[in-house]
């Protein structure tokens, strides 16, 4: 249940650590975002940039205060699947996206939900170390 002011973990190597949701995209205003939904968020906490990072990844890095798009990959709220099973994670997490709905980052650090595959985020699913 992600809506205005929700703080989420960012689990990619874009440099963002915590982001705050400021808008749920293409949903009823009373509605909330769940796994696979897109949001607009503000980077509230970012990793300090180090000089070792070079090339494309450096240009993709985000800073504190940046407004970015993201897709939700895990929620604390239970999600029911068509086979009747229900999944919930211990935190809310997202992966940052560019305007073409592709992930900004090149690496994803932890578990993502299987639902992303149905919503055409195949790149995130293939980058993730574990899909549940």
């Amino acid at each position: 249940m992600i809506y205005l002011k929700t703080m989420l973990k960012c689990i990619d190597n874009s440099g963002a650590q915590m982001v705050e949701c400021i808008k749920v995209l293409r949903k009823n205003p009373k509605n909330f975002a769940s796994i696979g939904d897109k949001i607009v968020c503000v980077v509230q906490k970012a990793r300090p940039s180090t000089s070792t990072i070079t090339g494309a990844s450096a240009s993709n890095r985000v800073k504190r205060g940046d407004i970015v798009r993201a897709v939700i990959v895990r929620t604390k709220k239970e999600t029911q699947r068509p086979d009747g099973s229900v999944i919930r994670f211990d935190d809310n997490a997202c992966v940052l996206l560019n305007k073409n709905d592709e992930p900004i980052a090149t690496r994803i650090s932890s578990v993502v939900a299987k639902e992303l595959r149905d919503k055409n985020f195949n790149k995130i699913v293939s980058l993730a170390p574990k899909v549940v």
Partner: peptide, 11 residues
């Protein structure tokens, strides 16, 4: 998984 708790209810 990697210190993240995951719960699945399985029928």
């Amino acid at each position: 998984y990697a210190k993240l708790g995951v719960e699945i209810r399985v029928p």
